[in-house]
Protein backbone atom coordinates (compact mmCIF):
# COMPACT_ATOMS: atom_id res chain seq x y z
CA UNK A 1 0.00 0.00 0.00
CA UNK A 2 2.70 2.45 1.01
CA UNK A 3 4.66 1.75 -2.20
CA UNK A 4 1.56 2.45 -4.25
CA UNK A 5 0.94 5.61 -2.26
CA UNK A 6 4.49 6.87 -2.75
CA UNK A 7 4.39 6.08 -6.44
CA UNK A 8 1.15 7.99 -6.97
CA UNK A 9 2.39 10.95 -4.92
CA UNK A 10 5.64 11.08 -6.88
CA UNK A 11 3.76 10.94 -10.14
CA UNK A 12 1.61 13.89 -9.11
CA UNK A 13 4.65 15.93 -8.19
CA UNK A 14 6.83 15.08 -11.18
CA UNK A 15 4.00 15.70 -13.62
CA UNK A 16 3.47 19.07 -11.86
CA UNK A 17 -0.20 18.30 -11.30
CA UNK A 18 0.21 19.50 -7.74
CA UNK A 19 2.65 21.79 -5.94
CA UNK A 20 2.69 19.86 -2.70
CA UNK A 21 1.49 16.54 -1.39
CA UNK A 22 0.44 16.46 2.25
CA UNK A 23 0.96 13.13 3.91
CA UNK A 24 2.33 11.48 7.03
CA UNK A 25 5.89 10.83 8.16
CA UNK A 26 7.15 8.92 11.16
CA UNK A 27 6.89 11.02 14.29
CA UNK A 28 9.53 11.44 16.97
CA UNK A 29 7.50 10.90 20.12
CA UNK A 30 6.00 7.55 21.13
CA UNK A 31 4.88 5.96 17.88
CA UNK A 32 3.08 9.02 16.58
CA UNK A 33 2.87 9.88 12.93
CA UNK A 34 3.31 13.49 11.99
CA UNK A 35 2.09 15.63 9.10
CA UNK A 36 4.59 15.86 6.24
CA UNK A 37 4.79 18.07 3.18
CA UNK A 38 6.38 16.81 0.00
CA UNK A 39 7.34 19.31 -2.65
CA UNK A 40 9.63 17.04 -4.64
CA UNK A 41 9.56 13.35 -5.46
CA UNK A 42 12.49 12.89 -3.08
CA UNK A 43 10.47 14.26 -0.16
CA UNK A 44 7.88 11.57 -0.75
CA UNK A 45 10.31 8.94 0.50
CA UNK A 46 9.61 10.17 4.03
CA UNK A 47 5.95 9.20 3.79
CA UNK A 48 4.49 6.45 5.93
CA UNK A 49 1.07 4.91 6.27
CA UNK A 50 0.17 2.99 9.41
CA UNK A 51 -2.24 2.74 12.34
CA UNK A 52 -0.86 5.92 13.86
CA UNK A 53 -1.79 8.19 10.98
CA UNK A 54 -4.59 9.72 12.98
CA UNK A 55 -4.17 13.43 12.19
CA UNK A 56 -6.80 14.97 9.96
CA UNK A 57 -4.62 16.60 7.31
CA UNK A 58 -7.54 18.51 5.81
CA UNK A 59 -6.61 21.34 8.18
CA UNK A 60 -3.69 22.15 5.88
CA UNK A 61 -5.56 22.50 2.60
CA UNK A 62 -7.05 25.88 3.49
CA UNK A 63 -3.57 27.09 4.48
CA UNK A 64 -1.64 25.70 1.51
CA UNK A 65 -0.85 27.73 -1.57
CA UNK A 66 -1.29 26.40 -5.09
CA UNK A 67 -2.59 22.98 -6.04
CA UNK A 68 -2.57 20.46 -3.27
CA UNK A 69 -2.46 16.71 -3.19
CA UNK A 70 -3.66 15.29 0.08
CA UNK A 71 -3.58 11.85 1.62
CA UNK A 72 -6.98 11.44 3.18
CA UNK A 73 -8.80 8.76 5.10
CA UNK A 74 -12.55 8.44 4.74
CA UNK A 75 -13.15 10.72 7.71
CA UNK A 76 -10.68 13.32 6.48
CA UNK A 77 -12.47 13.34 3.13
CA UNK A 78 -15.65 14.25 5.00
CA UNK A 79 -13.84 17.38 6.22
CA UNK A 80 -12.68 18.15 2.70
CA UNK A 81 -16.29 17.84 1.51
CA UNK A 82 -17.29 20.35 4.19
CA UNK A 83 -14.54 22.76 3.17
CA UNK A 84 -15.56 22.56 -0.50
CA UNK A 85 -19.25 22.94 0.41
CA UNK A 86 -18.37 26.15 2.17
CA UNK A 87 -16.36 27.41 -0.82
CA UNK A 88 -13.06 27.57 0.98
CA UNK A 89 -11.30 25.69 -1.81
CA UNK A 90 -12.23 24.62 -5.30
CA UNK A 91 -12.63 20.94 -6.00
CA UNK A 92 -10.24 21.34 -8.99
CA UNK A 93 -7.47 22.67 -6.78
CA UNK A 94 -7.17 19.58 -4.66
CA UNK A 95 -6.20 16.08 -5.64
CA UNK A 96 -7.58 13.68 -3.06
CA UNK A 97 -5.48 10.60 -2.61
CA UNK A 98 -8.05 8.56 -0.74
CA UNK A 99 -6.93 5.72 1.46
CA UNK A 100 -8.98 2.68 2.26
CA UNK A 101 -8.62 2.64 6.03
CA UNK A 102 -9.85 0.16 8.57
CA UNK A 103 -9.21 2.24 11.64
CA UNK A 104 -6.45 4.23 13.32
CA UNK A 105 -5.13 4.26 16.86
CA UNK A 106 -4.34 6.88 19.47
CA UNK A 107 -1.75 5.74 22.03
CA UNK A 108 -2.34 2.14 21.04
CA UNK A 109 -6.09 2.29 21.39
CA UNK A 110 -8.63 2.33 18.58
CA UNK A 111 -9.75 5.91 18.02
CA UNK A 112 -13.29 6.63 19.15
CA UNK A 113 -14.40 7.74 15.70
CA UNK A 114 -13.36 4.41 14.18
CA UNK A 115 -16.00 2.61 16.24
CA UNK A 116 -18.71 4.27 14.18
CA UNK A 117 -16.89 4.59 10.88
CA UNK A 118 -19.10 4.50 7.80
CA UNK A 119 -16.42 5.56 5.37
CA UNK A 120 -13.69 2.91 5.34
CA UNK A 121 -13.54 3.79 1.66
CA UNK A 122 -13.66 7.57 1.18
CA UNK A 123 -16.82 9.09 -0.33
CA UNK A 124 -14.90 10.99 -2.98
CA UNK A 125 -11.35 10.65 -4.23
CA UNK A 126 -9.22 11.14 -7.32
CA UNK A 127 -6.90 8.27 -6.60
CA UNK A 128 -7.67 5.38 -4.29
CA UNK A 129 -4.92 3.56 -2.44
CA UNK A 130 -5.69 0.06 -1.21
CA UNK A 131 -8.71 -2.11 -1.92
CA UNK A 132 -12.17 -0.84 -1.19
CA UNK A 133 -13.40 -1.81 2.26
CA UNK A 134 -17.10 -2.29 2.86
CA UNK A 135 -18.45 -0.28 5.77
CA UNK A 136 -20.64 -2.16 8.18
CA UNK A 137 -23.35 -0.63 10.28
CA UNK A 138 -21.89 -0.12 13.74
CA UNK A 139 -23.65 -1.88 16.59
CA UNK A 140 -22.45 0.68 19.12
CA UNK A 141 -24.44 3.73 20.04
CA UNK A 142 -22.68 6.78 18.65
CA UNK A 143 -24.43 9.09 21.07
CA UNK A 144 -23.98 7.10 24.25
CA UNK A 145 -22.04 9.82 26.13
CA UNK A 146 -24.47 12.45 24.90
CA UNK A 147 -27.42 10.49 26.24
CA UNK A 148 -25.68 10.03 29.59
CA UNK A 149 -25.53 13.79 30.02
CA UNK A 150 -29.01 14.39 28.62
CA UNK A 151 -30.36 12.11 31.33
CA UNK A 152 -28.97 14.28 34.11
CA UNK A 153 -30.95 17.10 35.67
CA UNK A 154 -30.20 20.66 34.50
CA UNK A 155 -28.33 21.35 37.75
CA UNK A 156 -26.23 18.21 37.33
CA UNK A 157 -25.51 19.08 33.72
CA UNK A 158 -24.41 22.56 34.71
CA UNK A 159 -22.12 21.14 37.38
CA UNK A 160 -20.72 18.52 35.03
CA UNK A 161 -19.77 21.07 32.39
CA UNK A 162 -18.49 23.54 34.91
CA UNK A 163 -16.17 20.94 36.40
CA UNK A 164 -15.13 19.53 33.06
CA UNK A 165 -14.48 22.83 31.35
CA UNK A 166 -12.77 24.40 34.35
CA UNK A 167 -9.71 22.41 33.29
CA UNK A 168 -9.53 24.28 29.99
CA UNK A 169 -6.47 26.53 29.63
CA UNK A 170 -7.80 28.19 26.46
CA UNK A 171 -4.77 27.21 24.39
CA UNK A 172 -7.24 26.90 21.51
CA UNK A 173 -5.64 23.70 20.26
CA UNK A 174 -9.21 22.47 19.66
CA UNK A 175 -9.86 25.41 17.37
CA UNK A 176 -6.52 25.39 15.60
CA UNK A 177 -6.61 21.69 14.82
CA UNK A 178 -10.14 21.78 13.38
CA UNK A 179 -10.28 21.77 9.57
CA UNK A 180 -13.60 23.63 9.63
CA UNK A 181 -12.36 26.38 11.99
CA UNK A 182 -10.88 28.45 9.21
CA UNK A 183 -12.12 31.93 10.19
CA UNK A 184 -9.51 34.66 9.89
CA UNK A 185 -10.64 36.15 13.14
CA UNK A 186 -12.25 33.96 15.75
CA UNK A 187 -15.08 35.39 17.86
CA UNK A 188 -13.00 34.78 20.95
CA UNK A 189 -10.13 36.93 19.69
CA UNK A 190 -12.10 40.04 18.87
CA UNK A 191 -11.68 42.91 21.29
CA UNK A 192 -14.41 45.27 20.06
CA UNK A 193 -16.77 43.88 21.09
CA UNK A 194 -15.07 41.40 23.35
CA UNK A 195 -17.55 38.55 23.41
CA UNK A 196 -15.65 36.44 25.86
CA UNK A 197 -13.25 38.03 28.37
CA UNK A 198 -9.69 36.78 28.18
CA UNK A 199 -9.58 35.61 31.80
CA UNK A 200 -9.56 31.89 32.16
CA UNK A 201 -12.26 30.86 34.58
CA UNK A 202 -15.16 28.43 34.58
CA UNK A 203 -17.73 30.87 33.22
CA UNK A 204 -15.63 32.22 30.38
CA UNK A 205 -14.48 28.73 29.49
CA UNK A 206 -18.06 27.53 29.34
CA UNK A 207 -19.13 30.38 27.12
CA UNK A 208 -16.23 29.73 24.79
CA UNK A 209 -16.93 26.04 24.49
CA UNK A 210 -20.66 26.53 24.04
CA UNK A 211 -20.17 28.85 21.12
CA UNK A 212 -17.32 26.83 19.66
CA UNK A 213 -19.52 23.75 19.57
CA UNK A 214 -22.45 25.80 18.33
CA UNK A 215 -20.37 27.10 15.43
CA UNK A 216 -19.60 23.51 14.52
CA UNK A 217 -23.27 22.52 14.34
CA UNK A 218 -24.12 20.96 10.96
CA UNK A 219 -20.43 21.25 10.01
CA UNK A 220 -18.59 18.95 12.43
CA UNK A 221 -17.96 15.58 10.81
CA UNK A 222 -16.72 13.99 14.01
CA UNK A 223 -13.05 13.48 13.23
CA UNK A 224 -12.34 13.92 16.94
CA UNK A 225 -9.25 16.04 16.41
CA UNK A 226 -10.37 18.63 18.97
CA UNK A 227 -10.49 16.04 21.68
CA UNK A 228 -7.23 14.45 20.64
CA UNK A 229 -5.44 17.80 20.53
CA UNK A 230 -6.72 18.94 23.92
CA UNK A 231 -3.77 18.83 26.32
CA UNK A 232 -6.15 18.86 29.28
CA UNK A 233 -8.07 15.80 28.02
CA UNK A 234 -11.47 17.50 27.95
CA UNK A 235 -14.13 15.36 26.21
CA UNK A 236 -14.92 17.99 23.58
CA UNK A 237 -16.39 15.33 21.31
CA UNK A 238 -19.51 15.21 23.46
CA UNK A 239 -20.43 18.81 22.70
CA UNK A 240 -19.89 18.43 18.98
CA UNK A 241 -21.75 15.13 18.92
CA UNK A 242 -24.71 16.68 20.69
CA UNK A 243 -24.97 19.31 17.97
CA UNK A 244 -24.61 16.73 15.22
CA UNK A 245 -27.33 14.63 16.84
CA UNK A 246 -29.73 17.57 17.05
CA UNK A 247 -29.05 18.59 13.46
CA UNK A 248 -29.79 15.03 12.34
CA UNK A 249 -32.98 14.85 14.35
CA UNK A 250 -34.37 18.28 13.64
CA UNK A 251 -33.19 18.97 10.11
CA UNK A 252 -32.37 15.51 8.78
CA UNK A 253 -28.92 16.57 7.70
CA UNK A 254 -25.64 14.74 8.10
CA UNK A 255 -22.45 16.70 7.41
CA UNK A 256 -19.64 15.43 5.20
CA UNK A 257 -21.75 13.20 2.98
CA UNK A 258 -22.95 15.13 -0.04
CA UNK A 259 -20.69 17.69 -1.66
CA UNK A 260 -23.66 19.31 -3.43
CA UNK A 261 -25.83 19.64 -0.32
CA UNK A 262 -26.26 22.87 1.64
CA UNK A 263 -25.19 22.62 5.27
CA UNK A 264 -28.25 22.68 7.52
CA UNK A 265 -27.41 26.01 9.07
CA UNK A 266 -27.26 27.68 5.65
CA UNK A 267 -30.61 26.25 4.71
CA UNK A 268 -34.18 26.02 5.99
CA UNK A 269 -37.37 24.12 5.52
CA UNK A 270 -40.45 26.36 5.64
CA UNK A 271 -42.90 23.66 6.68
CA UNK A 272 -40.92 21.13 8.68
CA UNK A 273 -38.46 23.02 10.84
CA UNK A 274 -39.33 23.01 14.56
CA UNK A 275 -41.45 26.04 15.40
CA UNK A 276 -44.39 25.73 17.82
CA UNK A 277 -42.28 23.44 20.04
CA UNK A 278 -40.26 26.31 21.37
CA UNK A 279 -41.42 29.57 19.79
CA UNK A 280 -44.39 31.43 21.22
Amino acid sequence: MIEDLKEKAKELLTSKKVDVVIGYEAGTYKDYASPSFAKTAKDVDRFVWNKNCVNNLAIYITKAKGKVGIIAKGCDVKSIIGIIQENQINREDVVIIGIACDGVEIDGEKADKCNFCDVHTPKIYDILIGDKIESKESSQDKYKEVAEIENKSPEERWKYWKDTLSKCIRCYACRQVCPLCYCDKCFVDTTVPQWIPMSVNEDNNMMFHMIRAYHMASRCIGCGECQRACPMNIPLNILSKKMTKEVEEMFGYTPGVDIEAKPAIQDFNKKEDPDKEFIM
Binding site: F37, C171, Y172, V177
Partner: peptide, 13 residues
Protein backbone atom coordinates in the same frame (compact mmCIF):
# COMPACT_ATOMS: atom_id res chain seq x y z
CA UNK B 1 7.28 25.31 10.95
CA UNK B 2 4.97 24.16 8.18
CA UNK B 3 2.95 21.79 10.30
CA UNK B 4 2.60 24.17 13.26
CA UNK B 5 -1.09 24.97 13.71
CA UNK B 6 -0.66 27.99 15.94
CA UNK B 7 -2.22 26.76 19.16
CA UNK B 8 -0.75 27.63 22.52
CA UNK B 9 -0.41 24.15 23.97
CA UNK B 10 3.40 24.41 23.87
CA UNK B 11 3.67 27.93 25.27
CA UNK B 12 1.02 27.68 27.96
CA UNK B 13 2.47 24.43 29.21
Amino acid sequence: SQKCLGCAACTYL
